Computed example of a mutant assay.
Amino acid sequence: MKKLLFLSFIAFLAFSTTQAQEPIRFGVTGGLLNTNVDFKTGNSLLNLVGVENYGNINNTGFYVGALLDIAATDKFHVQPELTYGKSEDLSFVYLPIMAKYYVAPKFHIQAGPQLNFSSNLDDIKNTIRDAEELLGTNGDVDDVLRTVGVDLGVGAGFDVTENFTIQARYSFELTDRYNGPAGGVLDIKGSALQVGVAFMF
């Protein structure tokens, strides 16, 4: 599954490269990452016994990676990225494909889909163990967590110079991370805030 998604991403980049009518620019990006994971239950009785007390993980860290800026027109660009983000005991590889629209000469808004691949979910696993103990559905946490998530990202950026951009993006998961025996009452979804810079070559 991961290999198929990765190959699809590479194929998209290759296609975009051949179709673009303007120069394609390569860059590097990095900055502050804040990840948030919500544990939600759909059962008020479970909330009364304390499951909601395990309901949130909020960590701060960093992200780094590479990106392409593909100018389809003067105002509309496509920006695929490959980044690695780490915040305490959570780490992810992100594959966003952002559509960028310049609403002013140097200011753009962006939106698009994002795949995230988890490489470390220790904080989430520990919380699941606590929640499942209360629910009486103890299982192997490695078997109940999905390692691939689908997100939607929105953000904005400002080109300080021709080569230097500051940008911020908020992404939230559309898919549920949890795939265990308590799936009827327990949902786990994450979100991320990135605030950083990009340098184009």
Rank of each mutant, 00 (worst) to 15 (best):
L7K: 07
S8Y: 11
F9N: 11
F9Y: 14
I10R: 09
I10W: 08
I10P: 02
A11K: 00
F12N: 03
F12M: 13
L13N: 04
A14G: 03
F15D: 09
T17C: 11
T17S: 14
A20Y: 04
A20W: 01
E22N: 15
E22I: 04
P23C: 05
I24L: 05
I24W: 09
R25F: 06
F26G: 07
V28D: 01
T29M: 13
G30S: 02
G31S: 11
L33C: 02
L33V: 06
N34W: 05
T35C: 01
T35F: 11
T35G: 04
N36Q: 14
V37D: 06
V37I: 14
F39R: 05
F39T: 00
K40W: 04
G42T: 13
G42N: 10
N43V: 06
S44N: 12
S44M: 08
L45C: 09
L45P: 07
N47I: 10
N47R: 12
N53K: 12
Y54Q: 08
G55P: 00
G55Q: 07
N56F: 06
N56P: 05
I57M: 09
N58K: 15
N59F: 08
N59S: 12
G61I: 01
F62Y: 14
F62V: 12
V64W: 09
A66H: 05
A66F: 11
L67R: 03
D69C: 09
D69G: 05
I70G: 02
I70T: 11
A71Q: 13
A72I: 15
D74C: 01
K75Q: 14
F76I: 14
V78Y: 02
P80Q: 00
E81P: 00
E81S: 13
L82Y: 00
L82V: 14
Y84P: 03
Y84G: 04
Y84C: 10
Y84H: 07
G85H: 02
K86P: 01
S87W: 04
S87P: 06
D89E: 13
D89T: 12
L90Q: 07
L90T: 10
F92K: 09
F92E: 07
F92Q: 05
V93T: 00
V93L: 13
L95D: 10
L95W: 02
P96K: 00
P96I: 06
P96A: 03
I97N: 12
M98H: 10
M98L: 15
Y101N: 09
Y101W: 15
Y101E: 08
Y102T: 06
Y102N: 11
A104Q: 15
A104C: 05
A104L: 15
K106I: 12
